[in-house]
């Protein structure tokens, strides 16, 4: 398989990374190189093999329903790019 420039732009858009035309060509070459490496996977017949998502075959631990976290807004917002009245500010969201 090989990625087109359009594919590169589509995934860059999905990933919210600005890629200009010159960069897109570079990404295309590099990504196709990497996919060349990845394609080796396709030669293996994995029919009937259970996909492995986790290193251990364990189940989720459940937390008791209790409020344990204090308000730390001030500390958290000390590192925020822009806040006002306790809110994080972002460019206008249009629905």
């Amino acid at each position: 398989m090989s990625l087109s420039i359009d594919d590169v732009q589509r995934i860059a858009k999905l990933a919210r990374i600005r890629v200009n035309e010159a960069e897109a060509a570079g990404y295309q070459t590099q990504l196709n190189g990497i996919f060349g490496l990845i394609e080796a996977m396709q030669a293996v017949d994995t029919t009937g093999v259970e996909p492995m998502s986790h290193a251990q075959d364990l189940s989720q631990r459940l937390r008791a329903d209790a409020v344990t976290e204090p308000d730390r807004r001030q500390a958290f917002q000390a590192v925020a790019p822009q806040t006002e009245d306790g809110l994080y500010l972002v460019p206008k969201v249009i629905e």
């Binding site: 990933a15 919210r16 990374i17 600005r18 958290f76 590192v79 925020a80 790019p81 822009q82 994080y88 972002v90 460019p91 206008k92 969201v93």
Partner: peptide
Amino acid sequence: VRYGYRTPEYRDLTDMYEKTR
């Protein structure tokens, strides 16, 4: 949005995301 680098100039939300990243 909540921490770390934000691009200094942007037109709108998507522009902010894409440039920041």
